[in-house]
């Protein structure tokens, strides 16, 4: 049931995704602030399918040359492509403190035992500015293979970007900057190079008192 209703292709399903800041309160406790978060969901057949977005509407927000979003989508499979609109929670009090930890954690599951590679490209005006590539091995748990990218440190570029964004006096200014800031994550099978999941992330700043929010869309080409 999760196919078409959550971030899942026929080969790999995203279980959880978060970018966070951990601030030590005292030697034994941490305060964890979530900038963005996709929690575990268990859709059923009675849930509606995700809304669709025509991928051509966002091509220019992501790398367009060789290996870009267009080429990736043409290679397929088409059911592996998603768009996530995040409303990021920037309400945390950020200070320059070396005891702070900025990280990203994500989890995936599959019925197949394989080695996955996750490429995360941060883009400014559609051009890649930094890329992180991570390789993860499967762990067999409860009848399926689970992949965990646990507490991957956020790069300097992203930490500086968040700090600069926070310093802008008005939310509309932050959103104006974020209009040209995107992230493209491609998870592939390390050995066969098949695309397992491709998630395009776009952002606004949350105005909610309930923290980070998101909408997920299927990317299609009509």
């Amino acid at each position: 049931p999760w196919q078409g209703r959550s971030i899942a292709s026929s080969r790999l399903r995203m279980l959880e995704f978060s970018a966070f800041l951990e601030q030590p309160q005292d030697p034994e406790t941490f305060n964890k602030h979530l900038f963005v978060h996709i929690g575990q969901s268990n859709p059923t057949f009675s849930d509606p399918y995700l809304e669709a977005v025509d991928i051509r509407q966002i091509y220019d927000k992501f790398p367009e040359k060789k290996g870009g979003l267009k080429e990736l989508f043409e290679k397929g499979p088409p059911n592996a492509f998603f768009l996530v609109k995040f409303w990021a929670d920037l309400s945390a009090n950020l200070q320059d403190d070396s005891s702070f930890f900025y990280g990203v954690s994500s989890q995936y599951e599959s019925s197949e035992n394989m080695i996955i590679t996750s490429s995360t490209k941060v883009c400014s005006f559609g051009k890649q500015v930094v890329e992180k590539v991570e390789t993860e091995y499967a762990r067999f748990e409860n009848g399926r293979y689970v992949f965990r990218i646990h507490r991957s440190p956020l790069c300097e570029y992203m930490i500086n970007f968040i700090h600069k964004l926070k310093h802008l006096p008005e939310k509309y200014m932050m959103n104006s900057v974020l209009e040209n800031f995107t992230i493209l994550q491609v998870v592939s099978n390390r050995d066969t190079l098949e695309t397992l999941l491709c998630v395009a992330y776009v952002f606004e700043v949350s105005t909610s008192e309930h923290g980070a929010q998101h909408h997920i869309y299927r990317l299609v080409k009509d």
Binding site: Q57, Q213, Y217
Partner: peptide, 24 residues
């Protein structure tokens, strides 16, 4: 007009794209 000169607000995106969920 090149697509990269078109603001997101003027593109064909679902209405929900501009509606922040209010879930706790």
């Amino acid at each position: 007009t090149k697509q990269d000169q078109v603001p997101m607000r003027k593109r064909q995106l679902p209405a929900s794209f501009w509606e922040e969920p209010r879930l706790p």
